[in-house]
Every structure is written in structure tokens, then in C-alpha cells.
Design a protein around this nucleic acid. Sequence first.
DNA 1: CGCCCTATTGATTACGTTCAATCTTCGTGG
DNA 2: CCACGAAGATTGAACGTAATCAATAGGGCG
Lengths: 211, 211
Amino acid sequence: MNTSISASWGRHINAIPPQSGEAALAPTSSFVDGQCIYSCGERADQVYRVEFGAVRVYRLLANGRRQILAFHFGGDWFGLQSRDRHSLNAEAIGVTGVRCIGLQEEPLCRPALFSAVLENFSAAQEHQLVIGRQSAIERVAAFLLEMSERSGYSRRFELSMSRVDVADYLALTIETVSRSLTKLKHRGFIELHGARGIELVGYRGLQNLCL
Amino acid sequence: MNTSISASWGRHINAIPPQSGEAALAPTSSFVDGQCIYSCGERADQVYRVEFGAVRVYRLLANGRRQILAFHFGGDWFGLQSRDRHSLNAEAIGVTGVRCIGLQEEPLCRPALFSAVLENFSAAQEHQLVIGRQSAIERVAAFLLEMSERSGYSRRFELSMSRVDVADYLALTIETVSRSLTKLKHRGFIELHGARGIELVGYRGLQNLCL
DNA sequence: CGCCCTATTGATTACGTTCAATCTTCGTGG
DNA sequence: CCACGAAGATTGAACGTAATCAATAGGGCG
């Protein structure tokens, strides 16, 4: 059995009106924490870009197990699928702004979209490596480095997601994530500032853990 | 520690001359078992399509651990990267024919390529689910169903890869793969015919295992 | 037929999960 | 501003699954 999933909000209704210059192609919608952006089974006729906040893309398995496949942050494209219906769910993490672009307006083969998919693909492969062949502590170290990279390689940053999300991203339990963080702290690689604050003290040490 | 990796062959030299009709755009090369098609660090200026045989795409980690990210079979495109250099290795499994297409000749945004990437991306995500949240026996069951699907949903087929490859694909050890196969046999889901032959007796039972 | 490589099976160990209890953090209201 | 409560996070103990180490069996090829 796995971590229980907090109730998700219903779908979003009120879209922010399109901003001048961007015209009707790219309306921005705002979502609250946990709100669904799209869900498994829906038609996949839009592609999305995170404006602010963060997004988790995940799937639920029969027995309640959840796997988060990716986190997306400002500037990231997401929601592209090979089939015409979504096979995954996307939810906002905290207050999040998302720009939606209809695929009929947007040529599917636009270079920007192409490289966005390649980027997503590449990230998925990297993550396969992490969850496939890394130990718990190595996964957490890799995760912290990834999050640091996403905040412009800063030494000190705040995680936008809870331990449950981290665990379901790394295919671990929250307990193991917590224990691994504690070990990293004791080894002098990181400092913890509250539940979300992370400071990377031994950046190089963390990198050595990951390979 | 992990399974030791058999020595790989050097790079391929003698390409089969381009076939009439396909012109110089798509020369087909033939590879022997274990031969390298491309390796990590090389320039990624080509995209490939499997003509016959099979291909494994993998990465080696520092401590000798190997993760196979994908198997590719006849008709599959592979080798597309987000950066200009390969971050992975590709090797032939058995005698394998591969059609190479230079990216300068081929517009990167060609619809066929786009959907090929989406297909690869989708497969990578599915595999993330399997190695992230499935038990050993569930992974092996999922693998057998995947291989069956790749052979046209046939009930009886031959695996093209060894147990080591299966293990490194499923992020398990060969012993665990072997034990899981034995369990599946004892439960009446499959029959084993030699080391490579698989017969799916309880197709539905296998599917129930995977979700 | 015999050898070597691959696969299977067995025994033990180690790592992460599970179950359970405590502590921290953060939001709310007095 | 502090006290309270609830949710999230940490820590602890026992358990279970897969890894490891080791030995045997099977299959393919000379």
C-alpha cells in the first residue's frame, strides 16, 4: 500500500482574459493548490505552459499507488500526448498560472513544441535512471540537485511541493524521503530550514552521490 | 552492485548501400549482436529506424549499474535527443538492420518524426510507472505483455534479449526476473519454452497483475 | 559428446516499507 | 501576539521484498 492522496479540486472554470499581444491563442488560467488542470481520459486538444507556480503530472494505479512522472515550473511546456486523450493527470501545486494553447491553432510541428517534447522526453529518461538504479539517498540527492537547477542553481531554495509529492516522484515513501534528508543533513551535505527550505552545503558531495 | 556487462563491439563500419527509391537519404546498416550503433558523447546528427532485429538503448552508471531505457523493434524510430550529443548508448540485439537518416536532410519537425518522439516519450512514461510503482512479478508480467504486443499480440513468441537485458530494463536482477518467471509459470499464467520462448496462457490474469 | 555460457534455484543479507508514536510547522482565532 | 489545533514531517521498531552470494541445472555450439 502507498501514501493516501489528498482530495483534488474540481476542474477550473474562470479563465483570466487573454493578455494584449498574445491574443486569443494563449489565454492564461489560474489554478489553486491541488486543482486539476487536465485528467486522464479527457481529450488532449490543448498544450500548456506554466506561467507561474508549479504543476505535477501523475498517474494513479489501481491499488492507490501514485507515480508523479514530472514536475513543471515556469516556462515549461506540458500536456503533449501521443494519443488524442490524456493518459495522465495534471494538477497545480500552490497557486499556479497556466497558459493554454489549442492544438488546432498551433501547428503540432512547431519547432518550439518539438523541442519542448524532446525536453520532456529527456527529463523522463533521466528520471527513469534515477528511480531504476539509484538508492533512496541517491534519489533524494538527485532530486535536490534537480530542484536547485530549476531555481537557477541556487544554493538555497524552497521546495514547492510536499514530502508526499517528493516521495511519489522518487518512487519512495515519505518516511524514506525524510530519513534520507536527515542522513544528508548529518553527512553535512545539506541544511534544512523548516519543512520546505533546503540549503545545499556540499554541492559537490551531492553530485558525487548521484553517479 | 549489479550485473556485469558483456563487452560491447566497436562501432560499425560497412554500411549496406542505399536501396533504390529510398535514395541516399536512408542508407541501411547492418549490425551484429552487441554492436554499438551510437554511444554516449557522440554527435547526435542522425536519427535511426529499426528495419529488422532489435536495439537496446541504455546508460551505464558509475558503479557498473546499467539501466536499459527502451527496446526498439522493426519500424521504431530512435536516437532523437534534445541536445546535440547523445546522452545514451544504443546497441544491436542479435543481427539488426538500421536505417540512418541525417538530421540536416530531414527537417526536424517532420510530422513522422514528431509522432515518433511522442511515441518514445509515451513509452518512457509508461515504463516509469512500471519501474516506479510495480513489484518484481508485476514488472515481469508487464514486460511480457509489452513484448507480446510488439509481436502483434501473439500468445507465443521468442524474446529477442537475454535475462540480463530484461533485468536491466525492469530495474531488477536476473535472479529476480528468473524467480518471477517461475512464479508466473506456477500460477498458470505462462509457459516457458527454453530460455527465450514464452507462451502466455493466462493473458487476462497477466493484465490483472499489472494494475 | 562435452564444454561453456546462461538460466534457475537456494540461503542469507540489506534496504526500504509498514505500522505507530512523537514532534514541528503553520494557519486560525482568541 | 500568543495559544490552540490540525496537517505535515520526523523518528522508531518490526517486517517483507528483492539483492547478494553461491551452487546447480539446462541449452546451444563446437
